[in-house]
Structures are given as structure tokens and as C-alpha cells.
Design a protein around this nucleic acid. Structure first.
Lengths: 207, 207
DNA sequence: ACATCTAGTGAACAACTGTACACATTGAAA
DNA sequence: TTTCAATGTGTACAGTTGTTCACTAGATGT
């Protein structure tokens, strides 16, 4: 009974990536996941793995690429829904929290990868964050906000904002997704963090 | 030739913990380290492990306790050297960076543990950070800084400061310890982050 | 129609893993 | 001095791991 029946192209590849994310979502750390474990979770024979990835690290790298897409979707939604400047922070944080809950496994992978084992994955996630920060700087310029800041100071501010939000990720992911109260607490606190930062940016270099 | 010659009590225990940290320092992620690997690195037979720890997670928990000591040492040094308020941020960040470099492996373990596999280790590190933040709040009160802030707002600010510094950790640890230039860059950027935050705190609720 | 390529299968293997057990040595308590 | 708990060692074993190999069903290009 050997031999594979052809399905949709790339189907197994997707199954393997989803399987890895599922394991991460179950609490496993990506660095401790092995090939056999992923294929078992995906319902595929171990050998199949090598048809799509050279190693688990390779799979991780491709997950980072998909993570980039998730982040871009989130960014787009934020831009569509946050038109005027007031309530900007609250709405953005809300969208972020919603996406973090909806793509829990992806964001868990991201949080793990920041201090992960694979240097390449680490750098990939870092790079996504830099991109995110620079897009944020563009948006603020477009909205005519913080106009008194130099480019470099604006970049610094956006970097800090992104880091703060990323750290909140670990808060969100460490609590049960059904615990609405605690989620709400994190949402409020993150909002206050960002407000504090933007107030600081508003007075930066002007005193 | 079986049988153990008694050495200093707790010597093997220390050797095992140091071995785990060494592996982490070499780039391995704590979640992917096994018992045999630790004992091999420590130059000890695998069975010895069980004399001191129930599992690798257990070892992790005890590492968190030691991490607490490292953090307290750092805090004490900061309090001794930072007497007056001006230059407070720069000196504190300097001390932090120095300690991060001197105890690289410990801080790597910390950065990993924040999004690690063991819930207990995660919570332990989080708890250390909370403690650190509350001590920082005490110090600021003692120095008569940010006196216009309510207790809860001061806590929030200190939380944000600690998070920001913790995130800088991943920056420091991702660059080679000999790359003085890049270390200096991180030091400067972290300082600016904290200055921005404290400016924000200074104007919080007052406009 | 035919050859080729892609993506699947199962069996095999050596290396490594966690853990259990019986035993040895020692410092301190009795 | 005898006893004993603590801490070390060596051997053993069953289960898991990553990876190679030979094989095949179906899609694709000519």
C-alpha cells in the first residue's frame, strides 16, 4: 500500500506548519519540538517532512514568513478602523488584543521565537517588529501627530511602542483565553502604557 | 569502582545548575535540554541528577531562585551608586548592562523563561519582575521623585520601566559580548526609552 | 502515449533518551 | 563503634529520535 495519492498541492506542507503551531499552542516550546512529533500531530509519516522542510528550524523560518502576513493583516485592519486621532490608542490596542486571541498559536510562536534557539528565527521576528515600527512611524507622520519630533526620535518612540505591545503579548498568552476579566485588565494596562509613552513623546525635547 | 567519594555538600547540585546555564549560554534553549545532556556537561553520571532534582523543570525553578539573588545584588549596587537624582537613569542603565554582560547565562535563562515551556518558571520570573518594579517604586518615593503620581500610577510607570529594560535584555543577549559598539548603542537607546517614559510620567494626569 | 517529476508510503537502524535498580562510600548521629 | 541517611557509581532496558533507502500513485509536459 505504498505510494501517495495526490491532494491539493502544498496541503501536507500546510498540515505540518499548522501541526507545529498546534503543539506550540498546547504549551510546548518550539525549540523542544522534533520532526517525528510534528508529523505525528499532522497525521503524516515522518519521511514526508523532508519533502517540504530541511529541518525544524527551516519550518520555523517559514512560520516567521506567515507570521509577517498575520501582522500585516492586523495593521491593515487597524488603519481601516482608526481614522481619527482621538481614541487612536484604545482602538489600536483593542484590535491587537483581538488578533492576539484569534491567532493565539501564531503569537505564541512569536513570543517564543524572540528568545528562541534559532538565531535565524530570532532575527526574522526582530525584523518583523522593525518593519511594524517603521510603518507605525509613517502612519503617525500621515496623521500629523508628533510633528515636532525628528525622524530619529519618532523612530525611537515607535520602537518603544512596539516593544511594549510585544511584551503585553506574553501577558495575554499567559492567561486563559476565556478569562475575559484578565484580558480586559491587560488591555487597559497596555493602553495606559502607550498613553504614557505618547505623553512623553509629546513633551520630548520641548522642555 | 562504584561508590561516591563525598565532596563539599551541594557541590554536584551546583555543578548541575551551572551546567544547565552553560548550555543555555551556548545557545541552547532551556526547554530543549535533557537530563543526560546536563549531567554530561557537568561531568556527572545521569543517575546523580535525581539526587538533587525531580526533573529539569525542577532545576529550572531553583535557577529562578538564584536569579532572584542576582537581581537583588544588582539592585543593591544600583542603590549604592545612584545617590542623587540627576544621571539616575544613565547610571542605572549602565549598571544593568554591566550585570547583564557579567551574568550572561543567567539573564539568557531569564529571557528564555518569560515565554518558556514551564508555567512555573514563567510565573517565577514574572514574580521577580513584579518585585523589582515595586522596589523601584519605593526608591522613587524615597528620592521624592514623581510625587504627583498616585501609588497605582507610579506602579504602572515602574512596571513599564522594568518591562522596557527586560526587553533590552534580548537586544544585549543577541549581540556578541565583545561588540562594544553595539552594546553601547543598546545602552544609549535604553536610556532614551527610560527618559521618554519618565518625561511621560512627569506630565501624567497634569494636563 | 509516454517519460518525468512530485509527493506520498513503510521498513530499517544506530544513537540517544529517561528512568529504575542494586550497590558503594562517606560524614555524622547514636 | 555501630548505624544510617545522603550522595555518589555502573548497568540495564524499553521507548523515541533523526535520517536513509527503495518503492509507488498520480499529476504534468511533450
Amino acid at each position: 500500500m505504498a505510494g501517495g495519492q495526490r491532494r491539493r498541492p502544498g496541503e501536507t506542507r500546510e498540515k505540518l506548519m499548522t501541526a507545529a503551531l498546534t503543539l506550540v499552542g498546547k504549551g510546548r516550546h518550539f525549540a523542544s519540538i522534533g520532526i517525528r512529533e510534528v508529523t505525528r500531530q499532522a497525521g503524516v509519516v515522518p519521511t514526508s517532512f523532508y519533502r517540504h522542510f530541511r529541518s525544524v528550524d527551516d519550518l520555523g523560518l517559514q512560520l516567521v514568513d506567515e507570521l509577517g502576513l498575520v501582522l500585516r493583516r492586523m495593521m491593515r485592519e487597524a488603519r481601516e478602523n482608526v481614522l481619527q486621532a482621538d481614541k487612536l490608542i484604545e482602538e489600536s490596542v483593542g484590535i491587537f488584543v483581538a488578533h492576539a486571541l484569534a491567532n493565539r498559536n501564531f503569537f505564541m510562536f512569536m513570543a517564543q521565537g524572540l528568545a528562541g534557539e534559532s538565531r535565524a528565527v530570532q532575527e526574522g521576528i526582530r525584523s518583523e517588529m522593525r518593519f511594524f515600527a517603521s510603518e507605525l512611524a509613517n502612519d503617525l507622520r500621515r496623521l500629523k501627530l508628533l510633528e515636532h519630533l525628528s525622524d530619529s526620535d519618532l523612530d525611537m518612540t515607535c520602537d518603544l511602542v512596539v516593544r511594549t505591545v510585544a511584551f503585553s503579548l506574553t501577558d495575554i498568552l499567559s492567561i486563559s483565553p476565556e478569562d475575559d476579566y484578565q484580558i480586559e485588565q491587560v488591555r487597559k494596562r497596555t493602553t495606559r502604557f502607550l498613553q504614557l509613552i505618547l505623553i512623553g513623546a509629546g513633551h520630548w525635547q520641548s522642555d
